[in-house]
Design a protein around this nucleic acid. Structure first.
Lengths: 323, 323
DNA sequence: GTGAAAGCGCTAACAA
DNA sequence: TTGTTAGCGCTTTCAC
C-alpha cells in the first residue's frame, strides 16, 4: 500500500494529504503485531510497577515517559503486587518481544530478574541486585535512614522509633538496617523500637497503635511518606500533634510530602530524575552498550515542619498565625 | 511444535512434563504478536488512566484487574494527561488490535471516543457520554455535591465554599453545578464562592489561600479527596483546624480519606465495584451484547470526623483522649 | 488421531 | 523509483 505508507519519499504534499485523509477516514491503524513480526523488532517498552498506589512510583514513570516518547517508543504498563502476578506480567512483556523494560520495585527472585534481563534490555529501580544482566538504579537507603535518625538526634530526640516497611520490598530492609545502625552509633540502643510493617497509610496508623501500647516515642522515622502520613493522622486523632508532641521523618519526598503543605520532613530521592536516568540507560542499551550500569543515588534530607526541637514539657500550641 | 504445544490431548503426563521442562529451560515464550496475527484475536485489554497519581483510579484498576485475569486476559495500561498523549495511547490500543478497553476519565472529544468504541469493545468510566458505541459508568456527581452541601447545612453551616476541580475532567463541572444548585435551593446564594481549579493536593492548598483572601468560610466542599486534604493541611499550617474551625467534605472516598484515619467526610463512589462492573460489561460485550449499557451509580455520604456542627464562637479543642 | 500447507498483515530484500 | 516476493511465528484448515 503506497510503499507501505511510511516514508513516501515521492508524491507531492497534496497527494500525501489525500492519502492520509483517506486512511484517516477509513479508520485504518497499522497492525503493530504484524509489523513487529515482520521487522523482528518492537517500539514497545514495558513498565512494571509493584504498586499502583505509590505516588513515588508514579513520579518515576512520569520522568521516564517523556524521553521515551521523544525517542518514539510507547509505554505499556503492567502491575502486580504478588510474585505470581509479577511473573505473568514479565512473561507478557517477553511474549510481546518488547524492546525494553523498566521494573520498579520488583519482588521476585534475582535469578528470575536476571533471566528476564538476558532476554530484554532492562533497568531495575529500587531493588539492589548483583546480576550484571540488568541496569540498576537504587538509592542508598541505609544512608538515608541514617540522615533521618541523625537529624532527629540533633533536634534533641533520643526516643526514636522506626515504622518498618515490611518484608517484601528490599528497600524496607535497608532502611531498617540503617536505622538500627545509626541508633547504635549514637548510643541509643535502649530506645530502639521497630513497629508496623508495610508501605501504606494503614500500616502507618497501625504502627502508631503498636508503639503507643508501651509509650509514645519522642520521634518517629517512617519507612516512607505514606506510612508517615498515616502515623501523623493517627496521632492527631489521639490528640498528639506533629511536631509539637512527636517529630516525624518520612522517606521518598513524594509529592504527598512536598506539594501538600503538610510539610513532611522527608528523605529525598530524585524521583523524576530516576525516571529520566532509566530512560537514558535504556537508550544506551539500544545503542549497543552491553555492560551493566549501576547507579546508587545519594539521598538527602529535606527539612519541613514535621520535625522540631524536642520540648521537655508537653505543650500544645499552634505554629501559625490565627485570623 | 508438538501440536503447537497447547492442548496436547495425547501424550502422557510424563511426556508433557518433559516437554514443558525443556521448553522452560530454553526460555521459550510464545510470540503473542504472531499468535494474535494468525488467530485474528487478542487476549489483551487496554486500560487508559488520565492520571497515574489519583488513588481513586488505582482502586478502579484494582477492581478491574482480578476478574479480567480470571478470564485469562492480560491488562496493558497506558497513561496520558494531555489530549495528544491520550489519543496516541488509544491509537496504540487499536494498533495492537486489543480485545477490549477501559478508559478512566478520558478527556478527548466524544466523537473520538465513539470512533474508538466502534473499533474496540470499550467501557468508559467517569465521563458522561451520549454515544451508544461504548458502555458508560458514571457517578451522579450533581447528586453527590448536593449531599455534601446538605450535610454541611444540617450541621448548621451557611458560609459554604467550593474548591473546584478545574475544566478538563467532566466530573468537576457536575460537582460544581451540584454545589451551585444546592446552595441556591437552600437560599444560600450570597455565600456561594468557588475557588481553586484542579484535582491535586496543591490545588487544594492554593484554593484555601484564595478563599482566605476574603474570609475563612465556615465549611468547604472539595472537588475530591486530594483537594480536601491539601486544603486541610494548608488550613492547619495557618492555625485553622478541621473540623473545629472549618468543616470539610471531600469526594471519592478514596483510601486516602478512608484508610488514613484522618477521617475525611467524603462522598463515596464504590471504587472497586466500579472496576468489577467494568469487567462484567466487557465480558458481556465479548459474549455478544451489542447494545450500549449505561450505569449511573448513586453516591452516598460517608460521615467522618472532618465535619462537625458549626460552633458560634471559635474555640480550639481536641477530639481524642490524651495519654 | 497426526502432519502438511496456507495465510494472518506487515517488512525487507530484490528485481524490474 | 516502483512492484513483486518471501517470510516473520504462529493458528487454522484440510488432507491423510
Amino acid at each position: 500500500m503506497s510503499v507501505t505508507l511510511r516514508g513516501m519519499p515521492g508524491a507531492g504534499d497534496y497527494t500525501k494529504g489525500l492519502i492520509h485523509q483517506a486512511v484517516n477516514d477509513l479508520g485504518y491503524v497499522p497492525h503493530t503485531g504484524a509489523r513487529d513480526l515482520a521487522s523482528q523488532s518492537s517500539r514497545a517498552i514495558g513498565v512494571f510497577m509493584s504498586d499502583l498506589h505509590n505516588p513515588f512510583f508514579a513520579d518515576i514513570v512520569d520522568g521516564f515517559h517523556w524521553p521515551m516518547r521523544e525517542s518514539n517508543f510507547h509505554i505499556l504498563m503492567g502491575m502486580g503486587d504478588q510474585p505470581d502476578l509479577e511473573r505473568s506480567v514479565l512473561e507478557m512483556f517477553r511474549s510481546y518481544r518488547m524492546a525494553g523494560a523498566m521494573l520498579i520495585g520488583p519482588g521476585i527472585r534475582e535469578r528470575e530478574l536476571e533471566e528476564f534481563g538476558k532476554a530484554i534490555p532492562t533497568v531495575v529501580i529500587a531493588r539492589k541486585l548483583r546480576t550484571t544482566a540488568v541496569d540498576v538504579i537504587v538509592g542508598d537507603d541505609r544512608k538515608g535512614a541514617r540522615l533521618a535518625v541523625e537529624h532527629l538526634y540533633e533536634l534533641g530526640h533520643r526516643d526514636i522509633a522506626h515504622l518498618d516497611g515490611g518484608s517484601l520490598p528490599a528497600a524496607a530492609a535497608a532502611r531498617r538496617t540503617g536505622y538500627l545502625g545509626a541508633m547504635r552509633r549514637l548510643g541509643l540502643e535502649k530506645y530502639v523500637r521497630v513497629a508496623g510493617g508495610g508501605f501504606t497509610l494503614a500500616h502507618g496508623a497501625d504502627g502508631v497503635d503498636e508503639l503507643l501500647k508501651t509509650r509514645p516515642p519522642s520521634a518517629i522515622f517512617a519507612a516512607n511518606d505514606l506510612v508517615a502520613m498515616g502515623a501523623i493522622e493517627r496521632l492527631a486523632t489521639l490528640g498528639l500533634t506533629t511536631p509539637n508532641d512527636i517529630s516525624i521523618v518520612g522517606y521518598d519526598n513524594s509529592n504527598l510530602a512536598a506539594q501538600q503543605r503538610l510539610g513532611l520532613t522527608s528523605i529525598d530521592q530524585p524521583r523524576l530524575q530516576i525516571g529520566e536516568l532509566a530512560a537514558t540507560l535504556l537508550s544506551e542499551r539500544f545503542a549497543g552498550r552491553t555492560t551493566a550500569s549501576r547507579h546508587i543515588l545519594m539521598p538527602k534530607l529535606v527539612e519541613r515542619s514535621s520535625t522540631a526541637r524536642r520540648r521537655s514539657g508537653r505543650r500544645r500550641g499552634t505554629n501559625g498565625a490565627r485570623f
